[in-house]
């Protein structure tokens, strides 16, 4: 196991995780700055009441602080948020992958063991969830979802999943006769329920189809997609746009202070399902949608 290549891979994982805790992908930063300049214009409106102006000024202040915080985190190489999350790993394994599944599990553990002290991550994971809740002090265990891919060696992708937003996750088993309009309404309702709790502005991942548990995985997988990249299928691309519009109308706003812009991006992933059902899950990420990728 401990040949050069496994150690290299552990190091790479650690480096990418540390980088992800202090730096966001460029397209997400761009989306944040675009939203900030939209709020800068909104607060200049003449024909609004004091209450509305106050809401918009507070929302703008949230975005200003986020920009300042990202600068500090990038310069000082420290986590942008103290909640460095639970590690959620998506392993896509190709035919050329040189590692077994158990080797990869150990390598990922090794990478995390390097990243957590090296990147000043918070110890955020407890062992027994119900009775003792003793902090493991290692940020282990992590969560992993396996899948195969047709070509090459594959990749490991990571979410540093903060729990302020994770606590706002929701699933429902809709009726198979649900219309796209009613579907959009349902997802929007789930986002409204989350309100100001998950640190808006948010990135929303939606998983539709499959089974109850798999729709949750699909929703998380949707969060992996780069902000600004739509689904390749035209109907789902259109659905993403409509969901984004619908979520903006909720008026939650940055920090929950109110305003016409709440979401930075919406991504949908889908899978076939049973004739009797339409499972849907929503995974919400705070504005700090931190992710990392390592090629195998």
């Amino acid at each position: 196991m401990h040949n050069k290549s496994t150690e290299d891979l552990e190091r790479q994982i650690a480096d990418r995780l540390i980088e992800a805790s202090s730096t966001l992908e460029p397209s997400l930063v761009e989306a944040l700055l675009k939203m900030k300049s939209a709020y800068e214009n909104l607060v200049k409106q003449q024909d609004i009441c004091d209450e509305r102006r106050n809401q918009l000024l507070s929302s703008l202040q949230v975005l200003t602080m986020i920009e300042e915080n990202l600068k500090i985190a990038g310069q000082d190489k420290v986590p942008m948020c103290q909640d460095t999350g639970m590690f959620v790993v998506f392993a896509d394994i190709g035919p050329q992958c040189p590692y077994t599944m158990s080797e990869l599990e150990q390598i990922i553990t090794g990478g995390i063991q390097k990243a957590v002290p090296g990147g000043y991550f918070r110890h955020s994971i407890v062992e027994d969830p119900l009775f003792h809740r003793t902090n493991t002090g290692t940020n282990l265990p992590y969560v992993i979802h396996w899948r195969t891919c047709e070509h090459g060696s594959g990749s490991l992708r990571f979410l540093l999943k903060g729990f302020g937003s994770e606590n706002c996750s929701a699933s429902r088993m809709l009726s198979p006769t649900t219309s796209p309009d009613a579907f959009i309404e349902e997802v929007t309702r789930m986002v409204i329920e989350a309100g100001g709790k998950p640190c808006p502005p948010i990135v929303v991942g939606v998983g539709v189809g499959s089974t109850a548990e798999m729709s949750g995985v699909l929703a998380k997988r949707a969060l992996l997609r780069e902000v600004g990249i739509h689904h390749s299928d035209e109907e789902y691309k259109n659905l993403e746009e409509r969901l984004l519009n619908s979520i903006q109308k909720t008026e939650i706003g940055p920090g929950g202070f109110g305003g016409p812009l709440t979401a930075l991006w919406v991504a949908v992933e889908h899978m076939g399902t049973h004739i009797a059902g339409l499972p849907v899950s929503v995974a919400i990420s705070c504005w700090a949608d931190r992710k990392a990728r390592v090629e195998l």
Partner: peptide
């Protein structure tokens, strides 16, 4: 009072 969510690096300062 609400502090700014996610702004951990800023608050450390």
């Amino acid at each position: 009072l609400t502090a700014f969510g996610g702004c951990g690096a800023l608050y450390a300062k």
